[in-house]
Nucleic acid binder design. Structure first.
Length: 571
RNA sequence: GGGCCAGUAGCUCAGAUGUAUAGAGCGCCCGCCUUUGAAGCGGGAGGCCGCAGGUUGAAGCCCUGCCUGGCCCGCCA
């Protein structure tokens, strides 16, 4: 991405590359000389949960836009509600942002500004623009009115400035119990925008804060804290999601009435994905009710879950780059994320052979005690990755699905009398098969053609397919976890009356395969390492894997044209 | 019922200040290639530009009305 440095002497900055309306606003501002051409954004998570792929879009926009225009992007934790926030979330959020590939300029907390925010609240009170209200939460709601009816003014709205000042100070000093009083902005109880009907600025909460401890017993509300925090940091473009559109008038009201640096809030549409839930609350339900194994379960759309599953930051960033920054509601197809994942993994994942559902093959005419080593390419997409040697012997395992007793039309793999190529090995022909008492094929007897070593026939004869294999005596056993969508519906929230989203959980989202066979080189694979199991998909070593008990997660399967042909023929 | 926002291919988005056959990526279909039925390469089919009026020589872009969808009545963010 080219960087467009603000340079007043170089003429107007022009839009290049893919544009979006936020970027256009920034370019306009630079060209108009606003803030001397300076651009500054921020990513403002609340440390009350784990980041998910929806947050990745915001991170991408905030950091990339700042970088493109030579500006700064701060990380600021929006920690104004001690009842929900914890240090562990702060740590995981920082880890996830870095993993995605971004580094913040300044690290701040809204709680850094509690002192300043308090002074400003006093200032607004002195100006007659804020008052202490003794109404209870229920009463405030009742007085607020409804969408169609104006609210009524609080009976405490017209207290004297002196009394307000005194009461507010005593709120701060802890003289009143939780919920007994609030500080409210005096705006307009008849405003069609509910946010403007004398919003609460401060509430009383005798609760330990993860950073300020017991220093405060009154805490600012989001609306009173966010804009001013932006302003203090001199954020020029405060980019947030659409649900805050209604809050913008209030955001501006505080800044204007305080006469402070005018940060500008701009709202964009959030990211949504098919078959995926992106709501912290619902994700928390999945964890609490045990539908998944934790926040980093590989089926979760959290960044930690995606990371454990084997997703790459590059794939996620590409999805974000492709997600439009606009104001339309959207649901992106999960398959698009998968496309970017495969695109990235195809370039970087070493190839390896692994048999997930083993079928024993005996090569009858191969010498009993011979072990050969055949040379295999590590990554056809990248010559620098070189080659490796893989042991070959008389008894092998192949994939159960690569043999059919009675092959359907267009099935190219092994069947009685058929010849196929063992990748990097030999051509083999199926001569016989053995069934167990249940009628399942448990062993194949084949012959090989010694002239085809390495996989080429000197007589130029062709085979219709190449299959993967592993030498039985040398293979390493492992467990493989196969994942599917967590939900069966594109929109998991679409349910029948009386049900909730858990009704759409996919009962088959996890399949555990034991006794899988991988080539010996994988014995020492490092946790997190990514591989392509040839013809099967991309897999990564799970966090819980050890050399004694290898565990792989299937990150994503390969595109499978055959499966689709078969599906279609069934219909 | 009130306010705010949005409505261009199956999906996500582009379409300066109105001007000729409305573009892209992904998906889909068809070929080619292939020691991964992967990857790669080539081609193709998809669009009452939400609807209806109006302004104009000319409208996806401007105006009006309507329809549809999203958000808003936490001392959450």
């Amino acid at each position: 991405m080219n960087s467009l440095e603000p340079d007043p002497g170089a003429g107007p900055v022009e839009s290049s590359g893919q544009s979006n309306f936020v970027r256009d606003i920034i370019i306009e501002d630079i060209n108009a000389g606003k803030h001397e051409g300076r651009v500054q954004t921020r990513f403002p998570p609340e440390p009350n949960g784990y980041l998910h792929i929806g947050h990745a879009k915001a991170i991408y926009i905030d950091f990339e836009l700042a970088a493109e225009f030579g500006g700064k992007c701060n990380l600021r934790f929006d920690d104004t509600n001690p009842s929900k926030e914890e240090t562990q979330y702060v740590d995981s959020i920082m880890e996830d942002i870095r993993w995605l590939g971004y580094e913040w300029d300044g690290l701040f907390y809204a709680s850094d500004y509690f002192g300043q925010l308090y002074e400003w609240a006093v200032q607004l009170t002195k100006a007659g623009k804020a008052y202490v209200c003794d109404l209870s939460a229920d009463e405030i709601r009742a007085y607020r009115g409804t969408l169609t009816e104006p609210g009524r003014e609080s009976p405490y709205r017209n207290r004297s400035i002196e009394e307000n000042l005194d009461l507010f100070e005593r709120m701060k000093n802890g003289e009143f119990p939780d919920g007994s009083r609030t500080l409210r902005a005096k705006i307009d109880m008849a405003s069609p925008n509910l946010n403007m009907r004398d919003p609460v600025m401060y509430r009383i909460l005798h609760m330990e804060h993860h950073r300020t401890g017991d220093q405060w017993c009154i805490y600012p509300m989001y609306d009173y804290a966010h804009g001013q925090s932006d302003s203090i940091e001199k954020v020029t473009h405060s980019i947030c999601t659409l649900e805050f559109e209604d809050h913008r008038p209030l955001y501006n009201w505080f800044i204007e009435n305080l006469g402070i640096f005018p940060s500008r809030q701009i709202e964009f549409n959030r990211l949504n994905l098919t078959y995926t839930l992106l709501s912290k609350r619902r994700l928390l339900t999945l964890v609490r009710e045990g539908h998944v194994k934790g926040w980093d379960d590989p089926r979760m759309p959290t960044l930690s879950g995606l990371r454990r599953r084997g997703y790459t930051p590059e794939a996620i960033r590409n999805l974000c780059a492709n997600a439009g920054v606009s104001k339309t509601n959207n649901i992106m197809q999960l398959s698009l994320l998968e496309y970017f994942l495969r695109e990235d993994l195809n370039k970087c994942a070493p190839r390896v052979m692994a048999v997930l559902r083993p079928l024993r093959v005996v090569i009858d005419n191969y010498p009993d005690d011979t072990v050969e080593e055949v040379e295999a390419v590590n990554n056809p997409e990248d010559e620098r990755c070189g080659t490796r040697r893989v042991p070959f012997s008389k008894v092998l395992y192949i994939e159960q699905d690569d043999f059919r007793e009675d092959p359907p039309r267009k099935y190219y793999r092994l069947a009685p009398g058929r010849e196929v190529r063992l990748r990097y090995g030999y051509f083999i022909t199926c001569k016989d098969f053995v069934k167990d008492a249940d009628g399942r094929v448990v062993e194949l007897h084949c012959t090989y053609d010694p002239a085809t070593r390495g996989g080429n026939a000197p007589d130029g004869r062709k085979v219709k397919s190449t299959i993967h294999w592993v030498s039985a005596a040398h293979a390493v056993d492992c467990e493989v976890l196969l994942y599917d969508n967590l939900f069966t519906k594109e929109n998991p929230n679409e349910v029948e009356e009386g049900q909730d989203f858990t009704a759409n959980l996919n009962p088959n989202s996890l399949e555990i395969l034991r006794g899988c066979k991988v080539e010996p080189g994988l014995q020492t694979a490092a946790v997190g390492a990514l591989y392509q199991f040839e013809r099967m998909g991309y897999f990564c070593v799970d966090r819980d894997s050890t050399p004694e008990k290898l565990v792989f997660n299937r990150t994503i399967g390969l595109r499978d044209t055959w499966a689709r042909i078969e599906q279609r023929d069934k219909r």
